[in-house]
Nucleic acid binder design. Structure first.
Lengths: 335, 335
DNA sequence: CTGTTAGCGCATTCAG
DNA sequence: CTGAATGCGCTAACAG
């Protein structure tokens, strides 16, 4: 029997003893160092197999200086957008032999700081962050001791960082144009608090779309600060109750779109609807619906690609900004 | 200036030098060991602050023997069910000061083995696994060197492990009873491959529901091995095209429910539908729909609770099985 | 209350 | 091709 208590993990020393070689030879075999005699290699592998030995990555990373850990900080994993982003990042990381450490901030800046601090103390090789707040000073290179950071979905502010974004402006512009092209002249907007960058951009695109049609934003038809489906439903109800209600609405994300759908369905109006983010069942609703679609999983993959690139080439290159295109999908009435 | 190159992380030695104390005192301060003189504590904290020092968790865990890392292996993060489960596990882990390491298997047993191996080599303190395959021998304590494992959503087989499950049988039984109570006598079933435990259980519940109504399963109305929305849509179409089509369907998960809805909508039949898993917009469809609902986030929380419990109390206690209740939700036609 | 010694498990360096 | 010495950063166990 081994000299260790049974539930203690074996070490290289244990493997070495069993194989009748030095720990160094075991280390070499496990790193695929070619300078090992074939029979020694065989003996080591047999001992590894017998003991079910697994190299201690914590010890290894301490010595080697790289953890092959990739930090991923998202604001809300319950949102399919971010879970798909996480999936995309995880899959690319896995392809490159890296392991993902996940954190959810629930949009709390304080929690984000803690998480980033934890990732730093775990010496992750890099991190992808969907930033919760507007100020990203705590993500600056000198604050994270040079660990590469890539922002996803929201651009850096107060820090020069790589980032991957969606074409929020262009998508919103295109969708709004679809509405005005159909003759709508009173178009409302449902959005998140303006300090959320994506929502602000989408509002900019919306405004530009109206402007292109010679229209201007009617503030009575704009509701920002909506924080979810229920709020959107309520706001939509209020808009529809106005004396001159909007004949069309643009919603800044899928949660708001769903809220608007509920209200419109309930009110039995023919209000036209366009919104950001595709979602399941959009096609089954039997409601005309213009959607700005894109691939959030791709966003995660791009972010991971940028990060691995930065890890390989160092911090000398200028920060890069990748913008993912959107496409317009038209869902029709039930056929 | 520090003797290190600027982008090198500071160590306790650096902090100690700057504070004019020994590394041991720094270590004590950082561990909140009370046996440190107040003025020394202050000097250390000042040095920590100045250098932006973050303790190296890899080195610490190597010495202490605990990584405070919690492994989480899911089959498909794109499925809202598992992303909510992950969120639940992450939130409870975070509350307990643990960090989550995430892996996605895409239902591939081989990938699961790799991931579990990686988690073992990273010496996670415990792991939650949604197992992909039917055989869980590779998760047995001796194979993971005693690291606690909790299974989620699917029960252990070939290993004695803690697990958290949904009341698949009871939920399916209850929903089926709702259908038969409304007079349906030809009820079809759409499910996943029978080797997926949840789907098999739901089929058992379905069959029991029919039996309670004095009915038996008509194999012509059963389609298993459906792997997604499109397959479910196709299968539903085929069932509806039969000479004596089912008047009601039970679907084993939300992906299949959505596929069935598409087909039913397209066929413009009045086929009744009951399914497992709640989903967004179920209420807006304007379709009578019986749903077996439960809280997947709660599942993640329970799994993490079980795991932390196991980590605290050791492997002596008998394996536990927690079953989460389901509830029936009836969505009506558009009012 | 503080510091010294030693070693967690591994890989780099340098001799054989 | 192989092994011995050394140290990555940290903390238990022991002096003082």
């Amino acid at each position: 029997m081994s000299p260790r208590t049974p539930d203690q993990q074996a070490t290289m020393r244990d493997v070495a003893e069993r194989a009748g070689v030095s720990p160094m030879t075991v280390s070499r075999v496990l790193r695929d160092d070619p300078r090992v005699a074939p029979d020694n290699r065989a003996k080591v592998l047999a001992a590894v197999e017998h003991l079910g030995y697994q190299r201690n990555e914590a010890a290894r990373s301490l010595r080697v200086g790289s953890s092959r850990l990739l930090g991923l900080v998202v604001t809300n994993l319950a949102n399919p957008f971010y879970s798909h982003l996480a999936l995309g990042a995880e899959s690319l990381a896995a392809d490159r032999g890296m392991t993902v450490v996940l954190g959810n901030t629930a949009e709390a800046v304080q929690r984000e700081r803690e998480l980033v601090g934890d990732l730093v103390s775990r010496r992750v090789s890099g991190m992808i962050v969907v930033p919760a707040g507007g100020d990203h000073a705590h993500l600056r290179p000198e604050r994270v001791h040079g660990i590469p950071v890539v922002l996803a979905a929201r651009p850096p502010s107060g820090a020069d960082l790589d980032c991957v974004l969606v074409d929020d402006f262009g998508g919103a512009l295109a969708a709004t144009t679809r509405l005005t092209a159909r003759g709508h002249r009173r178009v409302g907007f449902l959005g998140l608090p303006p300090n959320v960058w994506t929502s602000a951009e989408r509002f900019r695109g919306f405004s530009a779309g109206l402007a292109e049609a010679g229209l201007s934003v009617d503030e009575r038809h704009v509701r920002l600060n909506l924080d979810g489906t229920a709020a959107a439903e309520r706001a939509t109800g209020e808009l529809l109750d106005l004396a001159d209600p909007p004949t069309a609405l643009f919603t800044a994300n899928s949660r708001l779109t769903i809220g608007a759908i509920r209200a419109i369905t309930r009110a039995r109006t023919t209000t036209a609807l366009a919104g950001f983010d595709d979602f399941d069942l959009a096609d089954v609703l039997g409601l005309p619906l213009t959607i700005v679609a894109y691939d959030p999983q791709q966003l995660g993959r791009e972010a991971a690609t940028l990060l691995l690139d930065r890890m390989a080439h160092g911090s000398d290159a200028a920060p890069r900004r990748v913008v993912l295109p959107t496409r317009i999908v038209e869902y029709g009435t039930r056929n």
